[in-house]
Simulated scan of single mutants.
Amino acid sequence: MSTHDTLERSPAGPPARALAGASAAGARRRRGPVARLTSWLSGGLVQALLIVVALVWITPLAGLLFSSLRDEETNATSGWWTALTEPAQLSFDNYSELLADSGIVQAFWNTVMISVPTTFLVVAVAALAGYAFAWLEFPGRDAVFLLVVALLVVPVQIGLLPIAELFGRLGLYGTIPGVVLFHVAYGLPFAVFLLRNYFAEIPKEMLEAARIDGGGEARIFVRLVLPLGRPAIASLAIFQFLWVWNDMLVALLFANTSSQPLTVALQSEMRQFGSNIGILAPGAFLSLIVPVLVFFAFQRHFVQGVMAGSVK
């Protein structure tokens, strides 16, 4: 057997290694920008930088937590970081006092009753409207969609007084349904715009195949479009929930004492008692921890929604 034949047949020979190197180089060139970005982000320097950013981001949260677990006198005489070396400072007395305050507890449940229905209604209506604007033919579809997009530039402040007057006539002013309706109305334009653009990226052939198989529009929407649009829907739900949960302007104007959410209740406590850290710190942490838990619970869907449509 000749040396040339041996080199050609040997998998470890120079020609094989050259071919493998060329294939690897071609694979690296074929990688998309997302893959290259992911490879770069996996570097040690970037990971160290991200750890530093995470520590900076979480430090105020840790400070609020430790402050909420210390009494007012200790908070006034020393910094919260001293609790790291003196854990005897920590107790749940502030939370016991907070939960004994019926006004704060009622405000917390008011926040839940405002945020959850608003998020559900915005997502449900926007999903239906987004599918209709993306794939259903009806007269004036483009004009109506342009009108919806135009509403994105309308500031919330413009509608406060007219809607307050309208709600007063309808008996909705100062009620939880009134606050919910206001949030739904101003949350829908962006939600419809987002989901319509996402649903429009679904392959047309897939929808046509479902119609050929006898699927109606309602069944296609429930069985096909909603599962494919889950990342965008989850991202929208997270943003809408966080915005409504942390809102104070709308609730301050449209809610009364019996329907005010936690943000307004804490602002009222601050106005009445000044720097009453024994109530404000645990109340603020309670108001903060719920959105954080919601975000981390749905972060996988959120990341999928952010990466959707990226070039592979």
Rank of each mutant, 00 (worst) to 15 (best):
M1W: 08
M1Q: 14
D5F: 00
E8H: 13
R9Y: 08
S10A: 14
G13Q: 00
R17E: 07
A18M: 08
L19I: 10
A20F: 03
A22T: 13
S23D: 02
R29D: 14
L37E: 07
W40M: 12
L41N: 01
G43A: 08
G44V: 05
V52K: 04
V53F: 03
W57G: 02
P60A: 02
P60L: 04
A62F: 09
S68N: 09
S68I: 03
L69D: 11
T74H: 13
T74G: 09
N75S: 14
N75Q: 15
A76C: 11
T77I: 09
S78M: 12
G79C: 08
G79R: 13
W81D: 03
L84Y: 09
L84S: 09
L84F: 12
E86N: 15
P87K: 05
P87F: 03
Q89H: 13
L90W: 01
F92L: 15
S96I: 04
S96L: 07
E97H: 14
L99T: 04
A100E: 11
D101L: 06
I104Y: 15
I104Q: 14
Q106N: 15
F108D: 04
F108S: 10
V112W: 07
S115N: 06
P117Y: 01
T118K: 07
T118C: 04
T118F: 04
T119L: 01
L121E: 02
L121P: 00
V122T: 10
V122P: 07
A127S: 14
Y131S: 08
A134W: 02
W135A: 10
F145N: 06
F145V: 06
L147G: 15
V149P: 09
L152C: 02
L152G: 07
V153S: 15
I158K: 09
L160E: 05
L160V: 12
I163E: 08
F167Q: 10
L170M: 09
G174H: 05
T175N: 03
I176Y: 02
P177V: 03
P177E: 02
P177A: 01
V180N: 01
Y186K: 10
G187W: 02
F190Y: 14
V192E: 03
F193E: 08
L194I: 07
N197C: 09
F199N: 01
A200H: 06
A200R: 15
E201Q: 13
M206P: 00
M206N: 08
A209K: 11
A210Q: 08
R211V: 07
I212K: 00
D213P: 00
G214N: 05
F221R: 09
V222N: 05
V225G: 04
L226I: 09
L228D: 01
R230L: 14
A234L: 03
A237D: 06
F239H: 07
L242K: 09
L249D: 02
A251M: 05
A251E: 02
L253A: 06
S259H: 01
L262I: 06
T263N: 10
E269P: 10
R271V: 09
N276R: 15
I277F: 12
A284L: 15
F285T: 02
S287N: 07
P291I: 03
V292K: 08
F295S: 04
F295P: 03
A297N: 13
V303M: 14
V303C: 06
Q304Y: 00
M307G: 11
S310L: 11
